[in-house]
């Protein structure tokens, strides 16, 4: 068992554990913090997988901006605790867990047994996912989608303002 695999398994365990923590925690603030943990782990994984720019973006955009926004929302809305598994459609909970477990089994089976052709990941060079390389592709090949994205963000900002206006 190589050291790479050990590191990966460790990170994966932390990520899955944090995700499950988010799934089952009653306290919304805890759930947000668990999700922040998942995202940080993912940022580390991105670094390992040769995507340093994305790793930084993950930390700043997701953990920095989006999750703070979530925390902010939690503070505004108040830490309401809801009894999961009760309510009008309590029968859905066992079905949901059963079916997702079945799906997980199928997916793991599919990746472990059926898809074998991808082989090992190459250890990426430092320059491959660097901001310079990303910028070159983004502003040449993907210039139009990039500009459209800016419009989307603008619309979202205006939309958020309009929706929360008294």
């Amino acid at each position: 068992m190589s050291i790479d695999l050990l590191i990966f398994l460790g990170l994966a365990l932390v990520a899955v554990g944090a995700a499950l923590g988010m799934l089952f925690s009653r306290n919304t603030v805890y759930a947000v913090l668990f999700l922040v943990l998942v995202m940080l782990v993912l940022a580390v994984l991105y670094l390992i997988l040769g995507a340093p720019f994305l790793a930084l973006a993950q930390v700043t955009v997701y953990t920095g901006a989006i999750m703070v926004l979530f925390l902010f929302a939690v503070m505004v809305l108040g830490p309401q605790k809801l009894a999961e598994g009760e309510g009008p459609i309590s029968w859905q909970r066992p079905w949901a867990f059963g079916l997702t477990a079945l799906f997980l089994v199928e997916v793991v089976y599919a990746f472990a047994a059926r898809v074998g052709g991808l082989g090992k990941l190459t250890c990426a060079t430092a320059a491959a996912g660097s901001p310079a390389a990303i910028g070159k592709v983004l502003f040449n090949q993907y210039l139009l989608p990039f500009e459209v994205t800016s419009v989307l963000l603008l619309v979202a900002a205006v939309g958020a303002v309009v929706l929360t206006r008294e």
Partner: peptide
């Protein structure tokens, strides 16, 4: 480095945990 499949399995696992969250939780924020 590790096999791509491992990373994909991790990705699928996280995804399915997300699905389970959507299907079971009542708190809209969660």
């Amino acid at each position: 480095m590790v096999s791509t499949n491992y990373v994909l399995i991790l990705s699928a696992t996280l995804f399915i945990i997300g699905v389970a969250g959507v299907l079971t939780r009542r708190n809209a924020l969660v």
